[in-house]
């Protein structure tokens, strides 16, 4: 059994979107969940976020940024090719209920997993303000889709090529300090971004949910590789998360843990590049 790539689209330089035939995952997916893939017999198992599921078509939409060997190899695949293993949906779904005013903060490819969460929150009667940030204009993804689920969409870029120049923390700080303090914040993006967002929301005690993306193997609560410290306790991102109370997460620890195999990742990538 293999999982066919039904559609392929390059959303931005180095950011790709695939629709993959995986009916069981598509049928069961709930916002906040993820999947684990393995490309081929010699491949590693990596977690990926799900941007959308179409139960009728039996497909799930994944979005990823080419960063290392496996994501470049995945990016080089084409429509019609097959991925050997797809397991999911994994993780605890987001608690979708009425919070009131919700702020969504997306950094880079974090927009992909955030989209279904915000969509579900909006459909449940929440008012959604979204902040979408990236390094530069070309790397902004899902702008139109996020606009649809938000009453307001604020764009930031580090270099000022689109929207406000600066980081996603700036508009969030403004919103929190303004008249309409959000009842909850969802922040998904690079670890350092989520850490900084939590530093902004902590002062005002705004509930902040973050979605972590640690190194994983099985993704089902067996290996303990994805352990993170939340509120002083060891939690397993695959079965206790990936969404956690951001104000309790030890970000510095997970930032270091995600660099565990940096040297091997470099070797693997070099070997792959030289084989092309």
């Amino acid at each position: 059994m293999a999982y066919k790539i039904l559609e392929k689209e390059e959303l931005a330089p180095g950011i790709k979107q695939y629709d993959i035939h995986a009916p069981r995952v598509a049928e069961k997916f709930k916002p906040g969940q993820f999947l684990v893939i393995r490309l081929h017999e010699k491949g590693e198992r990596i977690p990926l976020t799900i941007a959308m599921a179409d139960a009728r078509a039996g497909s799930v939409r994944i979005v990823f940024q080419e960063m290392g060997k496996t994501t470049f190899e995945l990016g080089a695949m084409n429509k019609g090719d097959s991925i050997m293993d797809v397991l999911g949906p994994l993780g605890v779904p987001t608690e979708i209920k009425k919070y009131g005013l919700v702020a969504g903060v997306a950094g880079g490819v974090g927009a992909a997993p955030l989209l279904p969460i915000l969509k579900a929150l909006k459909e449940t009667g929440n008012r959604v303000i979204t902040i979408l940030g990236s390094r530069t204009k070309d790397l902004l993804i899902f702008r139109r889709e996020l606009e649809k689920v938000s009453s307001e969409l604020i764009i930031t870029t580090d270099d000022g090529t689109a929207g406000e120049k600066g980081f996603v923390t700036f508009p969030l700080k403004r919103i929190i300090e303004g008249k309409n303090k959000p009842d909850a914040v969802w922040a998904i993006g690079p670890l350092i971004m989520m850490k900084n967002i939590c530093n902004v929301t902590r002062n005002d005690g705004v509930r902040t949910f973050v979605s972590l993306n640690p190194i994983m193997l099985d993704g089902t609560g067996m290996c303990g590789c994805c352990r993170v410290t939340v509120g002083g306790h060891v939690k397993f991102s695959c079965v206790d998360g990936p969404e956690f109370d951001g104000l309790m997460v030890d970000f510095d620890e997970i930032i270091v843990r995600n660099r565990r195999f940096l040297e091997q990742e470099r070797i693997s990538y070099e070997k792959y590049k030289n084989s092309l």
Partner: peptide, 24 residues
């Protein structure tokens, strides 16, 4: 490592053959 992580890397994912196999 937990024992499970260490053994899974080696036994299931053949990390002893890295970088021929992707898992380190």
């Amino acid at each position: 490592y937990s024992a499970n992580e260490f053994l899974t890397r080696v036994n299931l994912l053949k990390a002893y053959e890295f970088p021929e196999y992707d898992t380190p």
